[in-house]
Nucleic acid binder design. Structure first.
Lengths: 258, 258
DNA sequence: CGTGGGGTTGATTCTTATCAATTCGGGTGG
DNA sequence: CCACCCGAATTGATAAGAATCAACCCCACG
């Protein structure tokens, strides 16, 4: 098998920008990655891909659409833990557990491929670079999680929401002022530890402040600089690390398909 | 170099139980791990090992004592992101960034060894099992983070505190009712998104409920079952995953030294 | 033309923060 | 051994922020 390096670059308009650095993979590595995408299926909006507590024997790769991981408490309250965008793998943290720590649920109609966790273990065993890739992805997820902890723990509702919007824009790789965010206010609230009622009031506040507006799933940012400032957003918490050996760093898996 | 497997088991009374599954490492792998512990130093309580935003060129392995990662906001508010126990590595998530996302600070006098991040990359390149080990550690950290998000986002102050205590007891590998938790109420509050004043009130509440007491850095659990119930604690979120290939799963690194 | 999901608004309550005063407790120096 | 000191903890009064409950609107869709 030829070892021709295969330069991979982020895909325009996809989650590619979320992991912004190109990575060189040889053909056998690409083959392994391709395995992950064999069993590809469509699911409707609000579909449970895997319930919490179920055996975590498969991982999911999100190819199109949005999904999330969420927990439901005994009293029915919900907390959204991750919002997944195209190119992300759902279930990485469950690799060190036997059952799902949360429910995986679609937020829009999606295209998802699923693969057995065994396949990920094999990649670790056969390709250090793929191992590195997945480790980096997990590290990125951690950075999103700690930023959410700061938000929920220490920021007001308005700053939380502002921060969430800036984070989403950045993860989507958008450089424009308007983008789709197909989450209703209940989901946003569940991600930010707020009620949907308070999310509504907070959006009207941000609108009065001329920072952002929202119309049916679409976010328009009216003053990005002030929004970033107001959110207390750390501009480089989602940027990559150029000093990783061989320029290798986490990259959207979907990017490898183009 | 011989490939004699070297069975490693958790160390009594250390963070070993936090990563409860034994792992087989050969001598060259053990040698690589030993490199991480060469440069070992002591630091006093409340010492900044690395400031937020600084170049993340080194990682730290905590051998004795407690430490944390924390963020300080523009208005001076703080949020503790991780509480590190002996055997944990500080800086794993920074592997995908060039700078520290948070400050690393000691909570007690500690013994810490530091090593260049390059060393971790090399381990990834040379040993798939070590790569797996570190990946598992990152996954464990994620599970602690999402549990904290659920706490801060959706639980009352009392349930948050109860949950935190149960989590600490479990991570410390304690099976008894009394253990050391050398965190003052300000630090606890900063971890749980509360003020120190409210932590104080909440402790007196838990004491009135006959669930826990706290005297100068020592926690005494008076009714574990009710505490777990009250906290909404998920009993297996810190348990390991026995189905990982070769029984290999994350294990406290310190455990390999005994 | 109902119907239902999503969103908005108002009134009220609840939880936690804030501010300020006081106490506790362990260590130090006289 | 005692007086003092300082960080940590407690307590009380009040304020702020978000939740809750309830009513109502909007509108896409069968």
């Amino acid at each position: 098998m030829m070892e021709m390096p295969n330069r991979v670059t982020p895909q325009e308009g996809s989650a590619g920008m979320y992991y912004p650095h190109p990575v060189e993979l040889n053909s056998s590595e690409l083959e392994l990655l391709a395995l992950m995408e064999k069993d590809s299926r469509e699911y409707p909006r609000d579909h449970v891909l895997a319930p919490a507590g179920a055996e975590a024997d498969r991982l999911f790769m999100l190819k199109k659409g949005w999904a999330c991981a969420m927990r439901t408490l005994a009293d029915g309250q919900r907390q959204v833990l991750d919002v997944f965008l195209p190119g992300q793998i759902m279930g990485l943290r469950e690799m060190s557990f036997s059952t799902n720590l949360s429910e995986f649920r679609t937020l829009t109609p999606v295209v998802v491929s699923s693969f057995p966790r065994q396949q990920l273990s094999e990649m670790f065993a056969t390709s250090p670079r793929l191992a590195t890739l997945f480790f980096m992805m997990a590290a990125r997820e951690q950075s999103v999680l700690i930023e959410r902890i700061v938000s929920i723990g220490r920021r007001t509702a308005a700053a939380r929401l502002a921060h969430f919007i800036v984070e989403m824009r950045m993860r989507l790789g958008k450089s424009c002022r308007e983008f789709e965010m197909p989450l209703n206010q209940t989901v946003i609230g569940d991600a930010l530890g707020l009620t949907s009622v308070h999310v509504s009031r907070t959006f009207t506040l941000l609108k009065q402040m001329k920072l952002v507006e929202r119309h049916s799933g679409c976010i328009r940012i009216r003053d990005l600089d002030r929004l970033v400032e107001f959110a207390g957003f750390d501009r480089d918490y989602l940027n990559g690390n150029p000093s990783w050996p061989n320029e290798m760093t986490a990259v959207s898996i979907t990017a490898t398909r183009h």
